[in-house]
Structures are given as structure tokens and as C-alpha cells.
């Protein structure tokens, strides 16, 4: 029981790092970006290639995954995404599905369609008995790292100058521009950081989730659930939503069959959307 809870929390933390970039673009900037998973996939493949081909140690791969995904995000934001902010949701959906298709096809073509796995360094493998609970060492590593990231993001968004500029730009871009806030740059940096975090999440998740060209499509719905259930006011909503989703998914698949486990999550999603369209943890406006 406690082990399932623990695994669920680790899974949820991972989902949070994967999805928190989307929580900002979709939740705050109101941009439907179905291609978010593509950045996570990029991060995952960076780790696979660096470790498999060049034998780079795992810990060094994590920042590399972040940087590559962030650069990719920055590049795409400046060239393509920027033009799509003011379009209708349908256009944004078409655009980002198109990006996903390109990413899936290109990855499949260059890197093969089979699932890739990595071998973790030995000090991250294995399980340990802590306070009578059987915990995986790698999962504890994920919980600590992702927990620290979540805390840092919350502080960054609420306490720093950049965070308040971002919130201002999201609330009313015109007024923010009038006050001298470089709205375009703020969005670009935010987008890059969000993509980088997705890449980092993909890198951390390579071991647990497995990485293959279909990754962006397989996990798209999970990211959307995190944002939809978590609501759009800040980072804490998506964080709690990720934990809930992680625990529910792991427990559901353990106690029910794996098919019914998925079923429960989607039903909960629909119920939340219908009764609380602004998310479970949204502040009333």
C-alpha cells in the first residue's frame, strides 16, 4: 500500500516536471500546444544518444537534455509559435498536431521505431527498506529532484521580478507592453524554460516510461489532464493535480485491471471539466 503510494508520488512528480511548461503556455498564455510532448521526447532521446553512443554519465545528461529541449523551444517559439498566439484555438490545434506529426515521423525515420531504454548508474538502481516501506532509489531521486524544482518554480513565479513580469504579461499583454515590459521576450524565455523542463522530464522518465517515437501522442492526454484538472492559476494547482493523477494511475492499474485503471482517470477528467471548468484547484475569479 505505502509502496504504491510512493511509486504514485514519484510518477506524479515526474508528470509535473513534464507538464508544468504546458501549464504555463496552455494555462496562463491560453495557447493550445499539443506538441509539448515532442520536447519531452527530445530530452529523452538526448539522454539515450549521449549515454549509448558516447558513454556520458547519467547526471551530466540531465542538464544537456534541459538545454537541448530549451534551445529547440526557443528556436520554434521565435520562428513559428510567436505567430500563432493570437489565432483561434482550432488553428493552434492544427498547428501543434502538425508539429507532433513532424516530430514523430522524423524521430521514427532517423532513430528507429523501437522503444529505447537506458541503464541507470548502479548507485541509482535497486530498492531499499526505509521505515518499513520498500522504496526504489531512483524513484526517491526523482521525488527529491522534482520536488526541489516545483518549489523553485513556485518561488520564481511568485517572488522574482521575472515572475511578476510574466504574470503581468499574461493578465493583460497590452497594458504590460505599455508599462515597458518586453512581452515577446518574456514569453520566449518562459516557453524555452517550459520546453527545457519537459526535456528534463523526458530525460528522467526514460527509465520509467520508456521512450519511442510515439511518446508525444501517448502522453499528450496526461499533460492535458494535469493542466485541465490543475487549473490555470499558478503552479501549485498543476502540481497537486499531477500528484493525484500519478497516485490514481498507479493505484488504479494495480488494484483494477490496467484497462479499467485508465478508464477511471478519464471519467474523473470529464467530471472535473464539466463541474469545474476552470480546474479543481482554481481560485474563483
Amino acid at each position: 500500500m505505502a509502496t504504491i503510494l510512493f511509486d504514485g508520488v514519484a510518477y506524479g512528480m515526474l508528470l509535473f516536471v513534464l507538464a508544468c511548461g504546458l501549464a504555463v503556455t496552455l494555462g496562463l498564455m491560453n495557447f493550445v500546444n499539443l506538441a509539448h510532448g515532442a520536447f519531452a521526447m527530445a530530452g529523452g532521446y538526448v539522454v539515450v544518444i549521449l549515454m549509448d553512443r558516447w558513454g556520458v554519465p547519467f547526471l551530466a545528461c540531465l542538464p544537456a537534455a534541459f538545454i537541448v529541449a530549451a534551445m529547440l523551444g526557443l528556436l520554434l517559439e521565435r520562428t513559428l509559435y510567436r505567430h500563432m498566439y493570437s489565432r483561434t484555438h482550432l488553428d493552434q490545434v492544427l498547428f501543434s498536431i502538425g508539429l507532433v506529426f513532424i516530430a514523430v515521423a522524423a524521430t521514427d525515420y532517423f532513430l528507429g521505431s523501437s522503444q529505447r531504454n537506458i541503464t541507470l548508474p548502479s548507485w541509482l538502481q535497486g530498492r531499499k527498506e526505509i521505515l518499513g516501506v520498500n522504496v526504489g532509489i531512483y524513484r526517491s531521486f526523482i521525488i527529491v529532484l522534482c520536488g526541489a524544482l516545483a518549489l523553485g518554480l513556485q518561488l520564481g513565479l511568485m517572488r522574482t521580478r521575472f515572475g511578476s513580469r510574466l504574470r503581468a504579461a499574461v493578465d493583460d499583454a497590452r497594458v504590460a507592453r505599455g508599462l515597458g515590459i518586453p512581452v515577446g521576450k518574456v514569453f520566449a524565455v518562459t516557453f524555452a524554460v517550459g520546453s527545457g523542463l519537459a526535456g528534463l522530464g523526458g530525460a528522467l522518465g526514460t527509465e520509467l516510461l520508456g521512450i519511442d517515437p510515439q511518446f508525444p501522442l501517448r502522453f499528450m492526454i496526461y499533460f492535458l489532464i494535469v493542466v485541465a484538472v490543475g487549473g490555470t492559476s499558478g503552479i501549485m494547482g498543476p502540481f497537486l493535480a499531477s500528484l493525484l493523477l500519478g497516485v490514481a494511475d498507479v493505484a488504479g492499474k494495480y488494484y483494477l485491471s490496467s484497462a479499467l485503471g485508465g478508464f477511471v482517470i478519464y471519467v474523473v477528467l470529464i467530471a472535473v471539466l464539466v463541474f469545474r471548468p476552470h480546474g479543481l484547484f482554481a481560485r474563483s475569479r
Binding site: 485541465a228 471539466l273 464539466v274
Partner: peptide, 25 residues
Amino acid sequence: LRGSDLTRLMVTLGVALVLHEIANA
């Protein structure tokens, strides 16, 4: 009927996924 475009996207997606899971189960 309720909610914005975004909610509708997710709800329709969710309904299809639920049916997919049911058919699988």
C-alpha cells in the same frame, strides 16, 4: 454545451478515450 473551446477539446477527447478503454476492457 458548457465551457470554452479548450474544455470542449478535452471533453470530446476524454469521451473517445473512455470508449477506447471500455472497448479494450
